[in-house]
Structure formats: C-alpha cells, structure tokens
Design a protein around this nucleic acid. Structure first.
Lengths: 221, 221
DNA sequence: TTGACAACATACCAAGTAGTATGTTCCTAT
DNA sequence: ATAGGAACATACTACTTGGTATGTTGTCAA
C-alpha cells in the first residue's frame, strides 16, 4: 500500500520526518490545532502551505492518513524527549519528576502536534472513527499506550518505594496526564516573555501533580 | 430576535429547559459528545430524534444556536449543583472539597452536556468561531467564567487560611479544573456497576487534586 | 537527447451540509 | 364551527468537501 505511511507497530522509534513531508505536517498540525480535525479541510492546509491539494494528496492517501502522520510525528517527538529521562539512572521520584517536566515542556513547545494527539485519543474514546480510519487509529493509540506505560511503570515503582501514595494506578496515571497536558489549553507563551516564565509554569504544574500523587519531598532538583 | 434563546448575561440562573426543547437538547448533546461539534450534522441530531431537520430549525435558528443552548444548559446544571455547596456555611477546605466532589460528579452524570461545554471552551481558546457565533460564544464563556470564579474565590480563601499552598492562583485553578473534568475522558460507568465505584472514582480524583493544591488533612468528611 | 518518474497544479465530481421555503396536521382560543 | 398559529415534515438550493483524473514541469539516469 503506497500510503507513504510507516508502520506504527514495530518496536523502533522513528526519527523525525524531514523535508517536504515536514512542511506539510507543520501546516496540517497548525490547522488541526486551530480548528480541530473535522473542521479543517484539506484546502485549508493547502492554503496555509501556499499550494494546492495536489501536493498533499501526492504524499498522503487521505485526510485520515495525514492526521495519522501528524499524530505519529507528535508521539515520536515525545518518545525522543522522554526515553533519555526514562533510562536515566537516578532515584525513582526524581526520574518521574524529570519525565513530568519534559513531558509538560513538550506540550508547550510542540503544541500543535500534541493537540492532534489529544484529539486522536478523544476520537478513539468516543469511537468516532469510520471503519478504515479505525484500524489505523487503533495502531496509533497502541503507540501512545507504550508511551503512557513508561509513566505508569515509573509511577508504580515510586509507590512500591513508598515515595508516592495513591489508590488506583490507572486513575492516578490518567489524572496525572491530563494535568500535565493541561497547559495545552490554557498556556500560550507570549513571544517576548523570558524562558523563566515558561520554566515557572512547568514547575508549578509538576509540583501540583507530584504532590497530588503523594510526594512529600522537595522538587528543587 | 426569535431565536428562542434566553439571554445569558443576566444574573439569574435559569431553571432547566423542559419538554420538547429538552428532547432536542439531549439528542444534540449526545451527538456532539460522540462526534464533536463540526462533525455532527443537524441531520444526525434529527435522526437520533427520529424526526427531521424541520423540528430542530423550528426551535433553533442555527446549528451554533443549538450548540449554545446545549452549552448553557450544561452550565445551568452545574450552577444548580454547585451553588448550595458554595453558599454552605462550613470550613473553607471542606467547602472546596464538597464543591470539587459535586463538580466531578456532574462531569460523569451529565457527560454529554459537559463535553459540549468543554468543546465550547476549546473553540473560544483557539478562537475558532466565525463572526456571529463569536459574540454568542463570548457571552457563554462569561457565564462559565462566573462558575469558575466560584472555585477561584474558594481556592483563594483556602490559601489565605493556610489550608492550601500553591504559587499562582490562576494556574492552580486551571490545573484543578482540568483534573476534576478528566473523568469526562477516561471514565464510563458500566451500567451494572454499583454506585460505590462511582463514588470511589470521585473520591480518588478529588483526593489527588486537594493534595496537589497543598491540603494536608484528611478527606473522610 | 530522451524517456521516465517525482512533484506538484488544474479541473472536475459525487456526496454531504447548513439553511430556507413551503406544505400539512393538530390544537386551541374565540 | 372556524380562524390562526404552533409544531412539525417535505422538498429544495447554494455551497463545501474529500477524493480523483489528468495535465504540466523539472530532474536525472542511461
């Protein structure tokens, strides 16, 4: 099948897409971010690119495929940012805090892509995908679940070490993710602002989440 | 203007819409919940009603108006649930906990409506409304802000009393709301399940949030 | 030089979609 | 009884949208 769409189910993490594809992806992510998936037409994306539909359909078989690639590219970014932290050899609670910070930073710095990921998850929850989209979306969601499991595992370790305290692991994980993702909806860094402000926002969100999960210590590391 | 659409800006909280309107609202909320606003056609709503477009356009001037009424009805439900708690005379932290519980319960029990509220907020954030929808949506958002301020006020009081501890009030409020709203996305009560399960989910979410905001005490009240 | 193919643009189509214009039926106030 | 309007259904239109079919141009290997 010549969708130009790499298989999601293999166990490797892809490097970011480059060149022409990337331009299309950026435009698509921006449009999906501003208007949502179904309110965005292929012509909208083309207009933002300063070109026409032809260009997009030359690289992608369908609108759903384009969305899928935005989703996957967003997740690739997250994996590349998180894996070093996940593999780091440091106290479990510190690892979790670093992962949380990195994740939250990702949400802000690659917002359009992450917003597409969010919508993809929503589409799956509401099972609002037509057959055909359905199988592709399911694969993509499995990809995201692998990412989620990195946090889930770390959360579980922390609890076993007595560093965290919560009842149900899945619920804790869900609430944590939603909270860490939340800047996606309420924070837009003003162009002139210092990096310090962004760091402050991230620190505050992570602090609330860590304490919420039962962490008692300091987070000045 | 014969939109049959009550003014949002007055200071009273409306009683729930009854009868024929309510049937349409329920169907619309369900459709918006399952497919999102722009992926839902008026014919979809009509089909769910077992009727035709004529019925809907007899009561609502446009799709945006219909959505607006779903939004407002959802917010009316929230106000009616929260105001007694907000006005209750009890320790501030307990008031907040009760408000949080009530709000979270609302998210689960009136999910389709709350999901429309969420999407309305999103639409406003991304300013993805065409002119005309825009002014209506802005009014509705002001309505929601009044609701949000009830929590913000209580949060602030708690901090002044030394019962909570967080840095920025707005950030704390945003993170709190997103976390309390989160069951909207990950919890679907199975029909057979006991009410106990629902209560447990609510308690866990509220516990995480309260601790995250710096509350040190117990929540067994 | 030339054939072939990638990378687009142009033109087009069938299927929706919001909204309207116009019936039709039933209920109710007079 | 009947006029009138509320509450719909039916039929229609103008427009959008995803997708396709078909050009056009540049590039590059043989």
């Amino acid at each position: 099948m010549a969708t130009g769409f790499h298989d999601v189910s293999d166990e490797t993490i892809d490097v970011p897409v480059a060149g022409a594809r990337r331009e299309i992806l950026d435009a698509a992510a921006s449009c999906f971010f501003e208007r949502g998936y179904s309110a965005t037409s292929i012509d909208d994306v083309a207009r933002r690119l300063g070109s026409t539909k032809g260009r997009i359909y030359h690289h992608y078989a369908s609108k759903a495929d384009l969305f899928g690639d935005v989703f996957k590219t967003g997740m690739d970014m997250n994996f590349r940012a998180i894996l070093p932290e996940f593999s780091a050899d440091c106290p479990t609670h510190e690892k979790l805090a670093r992962m949380a910070r990195t994740h939250t930073r990702q949400m802000i710095e690659t917002k359009p892509y992450q917003r597409a990921v969010w919508e993809g998850v929503e589409m799956h929850i509401r099972s609002a995908a037509k057959p055909g989209q359905r199988s592709t979306l399911t694969e993509l969601l499995a990809y995201r679940d692998r990412y989620s499991d990195l946090f889930k595992t770390t959360l579980s370790e922390c609890r076993e070490n007595g560093l965290l305290d919560f009842e149900n692991l899945s619920i804790a994980n869900q609430v944590m993710f939603v909270a860490l993702n939340s800047p996606l909806f309420w924070y837009s860094p003003e162009p002139g602002k210092h990096r310090a402000e962004l760091d402050s926002v991230i620190d505050q969100v992570v602090a609330i989440v860590m304490r919420g999960l039962g962490y008692k210590g300091d987070l000045t590391s």
